[in-house]
Amino acid sequence: MKDRLAAAGVLTAFLGLWQMVTGWGWVSPILLPSPLATGAYLVKAGQEGLWLSCLSVTLGRLLTGYGLGLAGGLFLGFLLYTSRLARNTIGLAALGLQTLPSVCWAPLAILWFGQTEGAMYFVVVMGSLWSLALSVETSIRSVPSLYLKAARVMGSRGWHTWATVMLPAALPQMLAGAKQGWAFAWRSLMAAEIYVTIIKRFGLGQLLHFGRELNAMDQVMAVMVVIIAVGLLTDRIIFRPLETYLRRTRGV
């Protein structure tokens, strides 16, 4: 409670300072909108149903893209674990591609897929797949061999060992990797939505992009707030409970 009060205090002070700097005209509102203006836009756009429509489009893309990345990452991760050849080729490529900022994929995506959903998914998958694959591989690799031995002397083999030992033992690390992959996917999607324009399906990234074109910085700022909120909420709603569950049951 005391921590929360302190945090709220600091936050209010920060907002107050921001309001002062902008409200008293020290900084032009064209460069930096005031928190009140940003808030006003947030509310107005909310009443128009803009957030609802943008969020449903954007989150739909994110889920599809991330789902594809996750499936591919699991598959590639297992491949990297089992095949030395894959490790020396795909593994090396993944290590390099993982460091490539996902915006770099946007030109190619537009060239190959045009201004389509496909281009969006492509950027999201490329932005998250490699880190997901590598983290799946390392999570499996770091399962203590004692567990595997214990399972084997009790008669476990092949698929049974995978399902009952490898996966549950690797789960906490895989979850950490999935969380990081999620963050990568989210950033990639914002890059994709800024570059790829689909008029009929308007996402958060496009809203931000057009805010810039119209010099409507309150709009840009409000979209940024929503993007951050989505990031925080997914952490709280999806990843945090899973982490807590694992910590509670395994005591790590």
């Binding site: 031995k149 002397v153 030992v165 033992a169």
Partner: peptide
Amino acid sequence: AGPERHRLLMFQDAALFPWL
């Protein structure tokens, strides 16, 4: 030639599974 459930080893460290 390999491990088999009729020869069961109980390890020096308990080696229990923490997910169960």
